[in-house]
Amino acid sequence: MMLALQRRIDRHLTPTKHSRATNDDCSKSEQHFIADLIAAAQLIRLSWPDSARLAPSSAVADLISRHVAAWTALRGDRSPGRRVRDAWAAPQDPAECGALLLAADTLLGDRGQEDGPALRERIQPLATAAFTRNEANTGAAFRRMNVSPDLSRALAQRSLGFNRAGGHHHAKQHVSSCQCHFGIEHVPALLPEAWIGAHFGDLSSLWDPKDAWKPRHLRRVASLRLVEMAGGGTWPQRAAILGIPWITAQRSLTVLKRSLLPGGLWPLLDTAVESVAQGLDAEALHVDFATRRRTLSTWQIPVEDLVPLTVGLVRFANVESPLTRAPVTALMWA
Rank of each mutant, 00 (worst) to 15 (best):
G161P: 05
N163I: 09
R164E: 04
R164Q: 11
R164T: 10
G166M: 03
H169E: 12
H170L: 12
H170M: 11
A171F: 11
K172G: 10
K172R: 11
Q173L: 11
H174C: 14
H174V: 02
V175K: 03
S176T: 01
S177Y: 03
S177C: 06
S177W: 03
S177M: 10
C178F: 00
Q179H: 14
Q179T: 14
Q179G: 13
C180K: 08
C180V: 05
F182K: 14
F182Q: 07
I184C: 09
I184A: 13
I184L: 06
E185D: 11
E185V: 07
E185W: 03
V187Q: 06
V187N: 10
V187I: 12
A189E: 06
A189D: 06
L190H: 05
L190I: 00
L191H: 02
L191W: 01
L191Y: 07
P192Q: 00
P192L: 01
P192C: 01
E193F: 04
A194T: 09
A194C: 11
A194E: 12
A194V: 11
W195K: 08
I196P: 15
H199L: 01
H199R: 06
F200A: 10
G201V: 05
S204K: 02
L206D: 08
L206F: 08
W207N: 09
W207P: 09
W207F: 11
W207T: 03
W207G: 02
D208N: 14
P209K: 08
P209R: 07
K210I: 00
D211S: 04
D211I: 03
D211W: 10
A212K: 14
A212R: 09
W213P: 06
W213Y: 08
P215C: 01
R216V: 12
R216L: 15
H217N: 14
H217A: 14
H217D: 14
R220G: 04
S223G: 09
S223N: 08
L224W: 06
R225P: 15
R225F: 15
L226M: 04
E228F: 04
M229W: 09
M229E: 09
M229S: 14
A230G: 15
A230S: 15
G231K: 07
G232W: 07
G233V: 05
T234I: 02
T234V: 05
T234W: 05
W235Q: 12
W235F: 15
W235Y: 15
P236W: 01
P236H: 01
P236V: 07
R238Y: 00
R238K: 08
R238D: 13
R238W: 00
A239D: 05
A239L: 13
A240K: 08
I241Q: 15
L242Y: 02
L242C: 01
L242K: 02
L242Q: 02
L242I: 04
L242R: 00
G243Y: 01
I244K: 04
W246F: 04
W246R: 12
T248K: 10
A249S: 01
R251Q: 10
R251A: 11
R251V: 02
R251D: 12
S259V: 03
L260W: 07
L261Q: 12
P262W: 10
G263C: 11
G264Y: 12
P267F: 06
L268H: 13
L268P: 08
L268G: 13
L268K: 13
L269R: 02
L269Q: 08
T271A: 08
T271I: 01
A272G: 04
A272V: 05
A272S: 09
V273Q: 02
E274W: 00
S275R: 01
